[in-house]
Design a binder for these strands. Structure first.
Lengths: 347, 347
DNA sequence: GTTAGCACTCAATCAAGTCGAGTGCTAATC
DNA sequence: GATTAGCACTCGACTTGATTGAGTGCTAAC
């Protein structure tokens, strides 16, 4: 799909205007923008085309157009220009550079707090987690003919347990054998050393009990996954309420509730691969709660500590270009502050 | 001020009804409550009396009555009965008892998260902080004739600074003297050892520079206050949006923004003395942002770690009796879990 | 002291009417 | 063939006015 130069300009103008105003954009508005000296009627035709292509939509006949997810996507991928910080913005941000904190985690939280305050965006993030958690030991206790309780104790002495039901009858030799096997193979092994192959190995080794093993391993896997003790946090959640799209309390509540749940943040943070900056727009999100939100995510690296994630969250019409630029600045600053972290320095 | 038995009953009925419905309560509603077999007209007279006493107010003529801060206060202090947990509530809460976590802080956070989820109230708290932070050293640099920069470095290498303006002209001997004095008297002294008397002592000693000293000491005090490295946290903030009083997004935003700021939470947490349970109603709060909120606070103690604070926050018409009971249960549970903290135990 | 009755108040709700921003289409123009 | 002016039409947003009903205060009777 190729857009003409003019269509690109119009799409860009519509999106940027909508980002600022949150109001559907009409053809007259665009035509007055003097970017391109054509009348509103022409714009109307072009906009009808763009709508046909699925880049714009109309909330109802006789309203202006608003960008669709695909529209934003095209904008972000192909049209967006780099956001230029104004002098005063640079000055405000530069003053942050003077922060001097030693505890890395609290520094990052502090920093995101300030950025959230300055940009008026909500920031979510996860601190750099080490993958050296492990499971201390496993216990398996038969409950009745076809169920047993699996108990898992982690290095932090968190105890998890689950009653597991089997398709067939079992006896205590089975539970014993399984728990022995788990203890031998997985107890004390740090998370980063456990991978799928290891699990498959076990599965092969225990071939006889295959059907019995599956639910057990599922739960074990769950436990291992949740071992990561990286912390997630959120700054400036209330900023979301600034956006007219959340003037409906019900909607706002659903989103805030979603963000309240650390599990969800974890999942979000985990989704970022090593790409530079990842942008997830509207219904590209896995969670339906986020179908009207966009997320701009990036990761940072602290040597000896691992990788953390940090990102902006806002309505789909967020200012992507500013978000991306700010995020780069923020992660850059984290890198800078953590690399030369010999404190003691005066201001 | 003494209330007759009937007035008490009516006040209690109004408050409890209002807590449930968030609607102004009319005389007919109360009269139908069959608690006391009198007609609505009688209730009206009594309610007029209660309004005159300042315990009830009317949002407008021809609306029912709603309790005033003073009304809630009398209710809480003198009328309120203990909340009785229902069997199912007790069962749900009891299942929490089975949690086994060792890291005290994360346990408490986890616990408050679950309680927030179950009670649908927002919970704020601060973890048990040690008071052994200190300020490493002070520097004072003259900037011009009547201002100087005060730089404070804490034990965590957090650097704070503030430009301080004086009423009179100063020279470098003054700044030098002040910074020497601060370093001699306060540098390296842990927070718990610093008290008002110490500050007064300094003030007396430096009598000559009294007017100069005041703004300096103010800032120093600020720094010392913020030394406490106990962490504050909030669980289930979005629950606030359930209350119709926050269906106005503007209002909700102000409150959430206030709670977003850790400083404010810190101040709130600090305000709890060693009382059993402290209830702060509406405009009894220092912060105007909380003038429509009530807070039920309590503290818990972990031996060897210090004191933490935990509390519910909600609209003034919160269910005080339930909040108090739940809070007692919660802090009790924390005590219990932290006292016999020999983990390793199976479920 | 209590209650029934009545006039009065006032927010909330609803329907009807108006307004205006914006569209799509057609015919004229460049 | 692309652009534009003009016009009829659509539809949400807003205004207005009438209606409703919950609730009050007061007075007179019980």
């Amino acid at each position: 799909m190729d857009l003409g130069e003019r269509k690109k300009k119009i799409l860009g103008a519509v999106i940027e205007h909508y980002i600022r105003t949150a109001e559907p954009v009409g053809s007259r508005t665009i035509s007055k923008l003097d970017e391109l000296g054509v009348s509103s009627a022409t714009i109307r035709n072009e906009m009808a085309d763009l709508e046909e292509m699925g880049l714009l939509t109309q909330p109802h006949t006789s309203a202006g157009r608003i960008p669709s997810t695909m529209g934003y996507r095209t904008y972000v991928d192909r049209l967006m220009k780099n956001y230029e910080f104004s002098v005063s913005e640079i000055n405000r941000l530069r003053s942050l550079m003077e922060l001097q904190l030693t505890e890395v985690d609290s520094m990052i939280k502090e920093l995101t707090g300030i950025y959230s305050y300055l940009t008026n965006y909500t920031i979510v993030g996860s601190s750099a987690g080490n993958n050296n958690g492990y499971i201390k030991n496993f216990h398996m206790v038969q409950i009745d003919r076809n169920s047993a309780l699996l108990i898992v104790v982690t290095d932090k002495n968190i105890v998890k347990n689950k009653q597991i039901y089997f398709d067939c009858d079992i006896d205590s030799t089975v539970t014993e054998k399984i728990s022995n096997m788990l203890n031998e193979n997985l107890a004390g092994v740090v998370k980063s050393k456990i991978n799928l192959e290891k699990i498959y190995e076990i599965q092969a080794e225990m071939d006889v009990y295959k059907s019995v093993l599956l639910p057990v391993l599922n739960f074990v896997n769950e436990c291992i996954e949740s071992l990561d003790n990286s912390e997630v946090f959120i700054s400036g959640a209330s900023k979301l309420l600034d956006f007219p799209e959340y003037s409906n309390v019900q909607k706002a509540k659903e989103l805030l509730e979603f963000l309240d749940n650390k599990e969800n943040l974890h999942r979000m943070a985990a989704s970022v691969d090593n790409a530079d900056v990842k942008i997830i727009i509207g219904n590209e999100n896995d969670a339906i709660e986020l179908k009207d939100c966009s997320i701009v995510l990036s990761s940072y690296n602290i040597k000896g500590k691992g990788t953390g994630t940090i990102g902006f969250i806002g309505p789909t019409r967020m200012n992507y270009s500013k978000a991306v630029s700010t995020l780069k600045l923020l992660t850059g600053q984290i890198d800078k502050l953590t690399s030369n972290k010999e404190p003691e320095g005066e201001k």
